[in-house]
């Protein structure tokens, strides 16, 4: 048993490498924050394109659905490797873009950010879609009958209501996103997992990797409770709403 503890929970190893792992974890958080903004925006754009009405948007809608399907079907790790292993060699793209070093972050950071945004944008688009489709069609009809255009109805009526219906599934996606930032370690971004693995390679001890995992728990465990709370609260709302309609 002590062998097990020494392998995974050697406090000396954890203590020795704490600041490095923490610094790596902050890199995970930074990547998460950047992708959070990008993917929430990209996902909303995709979801809105998917809702465009009329025959003339059939090709655009089809393209968007294909994008969403493909990027949800592909393993994220493969997308990361396709981008980091290919983009730098596409010489028709300006160097600042194919080997980005923006805001003092190295290029693996941006390859990871791009891959995560492409994939999580697709997942998040589906979450938005669920919210949009949960808004009763009478809302759009009322907005349209008042003379609002489709985009005005979306902006003022549908999207604000859709967002209030999806906090729990959205937080689930963001929870996965935070954890998946560790995948960018494969392209040598110095985040917590990579640092943990370097320690593992030197010392044959897993405690630094475990430490990285524990740091994630500090954030993801409360998030899981929050999701549960939101789901429960939402169920309460639904019951109350039904009660009002009956009464």
């Amino acid at each position: 048993m002590s062998e097990f503890f020494n392998q995974y929970f050697d406090f000396t190893v954890m203590g020795d490498h704490f600041s490095e792992v923490l610094e790596g974890f902050l890199k995970n958080l930074l990547l998460f924050a950047v992708v959070l903004v990008l993917a929430l925006t990209w996902g909303l754009i995709l979801a809105l394109i998917r809702q465009l009405p009329g025959k003339k948007f059939i090709p655009l809608r089809g393209l968007t659905i294909a994008y969403i399907d493909v990027f949800r079907a592909m393993p994220l790790l493969i997308i990361i490797l396709l981008i980091s292993g290919g983009l730098p060699y596409l010489e028709f793209i300006p160097k600042d873009i194919r080997i980005p070093q923006w805001f003092g972050q190295p290029d693996p950071f941006w390859y990871g950010a791009l891959a995560l945004t492409l994939v999580y944008g697709a997942y998040i688009a589906e979450v938005y879609r669920a919210g949009i489709e949960a808004v009763p069609p009478g809302q759009i009809e009322a907005a349209r009958s008042l003379g609002m255009s489709h985009s005005q109805a979306m902006r003022h009526i549908v999207v604000p209501q859709a967002i209030t219906k999806i906090p729990a599934p959205m937080l689930n996606e963001l929870n996965s996103l935070l954890k998946d930032t560790t995948l960018v370690s494969v392209v040598a971004l110095g985040e917590s997992l990579l640092i943990g693995r370097e320690v593992l390679a030197e010392t044959f001890n897993s405690s630094a990797v475990m430490l990285a995992g524990l740091m994630f728990l500090v954030i993801t465990l409360p998030l899981a409770r929050l999701v549960d709370y939101l789901i429960k609260r939402n169920q309460g709302k639904v019951t109350r709403g039904a009660h009002i309609e009956v009464g």
Binding site: A142, S145, L146
Partner: peptide
């Protein structure tokens, strides 16, 4: 559409007020 919907008002069975 613009011509019509700015001249014709409609009231629905289910009210369809904007809840937010």
């Amino acid at each position: 559409l613009d011509f019509v919907r700015q001249r014709v008002g409609m009231v629905f069975q289910q009210f369809n007020l904007f809840p937010h």
